[in-house]
Computed example of a mutant assay.
Amino acid sequence: MNDDPAVPETGTYAVDHRDGSVGEVMGCEGGLVQLRPIGGGREWDCPPGSVGDAPAGEVLRLRVRELNRQVQERPR
């Protein structure tokens, strides 16, 4: 649980309003929210004032895209 209500809970999805990127909240370090792209990848830092709840439809779209990518990479 976070002490700062501006910081989303770890494990939830958030949008970085600076560029519209959506990521999973990995934690808060040094006063910055750490986000990771859906499906993995390099984390990035976002000021708490620039992060907000990600729209459920956008999260679903990105998760489906990632699942489709994984299925296509499987050997047949």
Rank of each mutant, 00 (worst) to 15 (best):
R18P: 03
M26L: 10
P55E: 13
A54G: 08
D19E: 03
P8A: 01
N2D: 06
V64E: 13
E29V: 15
G41H: 04
G27V: 10
P8K: 03
E43Q: 13
S21R: 01
D3S: 07
V51F: 07
R76E: 07
E58L: 14
P48H: 06
C46W: 08
A54V: 10
G52I: 00
V7A: 01
P37N: 06
N2C: 02
T12K: 10
C28G: 11
M26I: 08
C46R: 12
V25W: 04
R69N: 09
E9Y: 06
A14V: 04
R36L: 05
G49H: 14
V64F: 10
M26V: 12
R65Y: 13
D16K: 11
W44F: 01
G39D: 06
E58D: 13
T12L: 00
L60S: 09
A56W: 13
R63H: 09
G20K: 07
W44H: 12
T12C: 09
R74T: 05
G11T: 00
G20N: 05
R65I: 11
V59S: 05
D3P: 13
V33T: 05
D3I: 11
M1P: 10
Q34Y: 00
A54L: 05
Q72C: 06
G52V: 01
P47W: 15
V59E: 04
A56V: 15
D16N: 10
W44D: 12
E29Y: 15
R42M: 06
A6H: 02
G23L: 05
S50T: 15
V59Y: 13
Q72Y: 09
V15Q: 04
D4S: 06
G57P: 02
G52R: 03
V71P: 02
G30R: 05
R61Y: 02
C46H: 08
R18C: 00
H17A: 15
G40I: 00
R76N: 03
A56F: 14
H17W: 09
E24Y: 10
P55H: 12
H17V: 11
R65G: 10
D16H: 15
D4N: 05
E73I: 11
D19V: 11
L62H: 15
L32G: 09
G27S: 09
T10H: 08
D16I: 12
G23A: 13
G20Q: 07
L60F: 12
P5E: 08
V51K: 01
D53G: 08
D19Q: 01
L32R: 13
H17N: 03
R65C: 15
T10S: 00
G31K: 09
G31V: 12
